[in-house]
Nucleic acid binder design. Structure first.
Lengths: 175, 175
DNA sequence: TATTGTTATACTCTATAACTATA
DNA sequence: TATAGTTATAGAGTATAACAATA
């Protein structure tokens, strides 16, 4: 086996040659840029993720969404307080269990989510500019394999920070 | 032009299909794992980055390293206080400018850096497990192109958070 | 007057745990 | 007794700005 590289030694090609370093840096930069991208609609990435999840399954409780997104109950309160204050989300009382609050999107919430979604798609396009479709697919494949190496559940990332946007749709024949 | 995908609509393949989302998630996971990886030697990623930079250019001032790593002067103080307290780094007075402190590694610092470096190389191997050498190169190439799209200076990431490890060296003929 | 390093202050974010109202 | 949501408190981490010594 080859000798381990030493810091500053001949084997040290610098951080830019490291997958770990590059992922770490790039992930941070992407998060920050996404944050800026959403600024025009006044949403934080976490709020965007939450709205997205509510849209996909309206009527679930605060706690349910909190578990999915790994957000503690106490943080959910302030998060939803603001979204509700802005008229994007409703807390409806559940007749069968008056402790629980079922979350629903308002029409305004749906509209804003669509706007935010469009912005996210725009960023995705920027990130992938100059990548051919098969390169993009290859990149995703490689990233998912690294994710598996890290022990992250592969299939459709269960929840986690869940900030992110969908891909720009590849031109499907027969729309 | 193809219609923009709607949230939850047919064009929405979910976050796992998005380069932005995946990078953001993976970057975060890698950072966290790197943090854990360094725990055995008692270094934070930022301390590791700092030691690394000092090793590459001993004798520069606190401020100089702070600028390179984008760490404010006030944070540098506590950071170096601890490294110095542990006997890894020395603040030497500069005869020509008595305000400035030239940073040097001690022998212990060099030894610990080498240990940390080995751990980082180990993580890099874990991340890239199952990737053939050309896949790894391809991944780095694609990531760097995305970085360029984000406006990050390409050549050898100037500084930024600078947490990361070097690559595991590819088996070079003629060691 | 400007600069290096330091110290002090204040702010943001977050988790923890106590509290209420229901069950 | 346990659970959904809420509120209050405390802690980590960080930036901002005031400060001392030197240039």
């Amino acid at each position: 086996m080859s000798p381990a590289p030493q810091p500053g030694g001949r084997g040290d090609r610098g951080p830019a040659g490291s997958v770990g370093f590059t992922l770490s840096q790039l992930g941070y930069a992407v998060s920050r840029r996404f944050h800026e991208t959403l600024a025009p609609v006044g949403l934080e990435p976490r709020q965007f993720a939450l709205l997205r999840h509510i849209a996909l399954a309206e009527g679930r409780t605060q706690q349910a969404f909190g578990e999915t997104l790994q957000i503690p109950a106490s943080r959910m309160v302030a998060l939803i307080d603001e979204l509700e204050g802005r008229g994007l989300v409703e807390r409806r009382t559940n007749p069968t269990d008056r402790r629980a609050r079922a979350l629903h999107l308002t029409d305004g919430g749906r509209a804003l989510l669509a706007e935010a979604f469009a912005l996210a798609v725009g960023l995705e396009k920027v990130l992938c500019a100059g990548l051919r479709r098969e390169e993009q697919a290859s990149l995703l494949d490689l990233l998912h394999r690294v994710a598996v190496n890290l022990g992250l559940a592969d299939g459709a990332h269960p929840g986690l920070g869940g900030h992110f946007p969908p891909p720009s749709r590849p031109p499907s024949r027969r729309s």
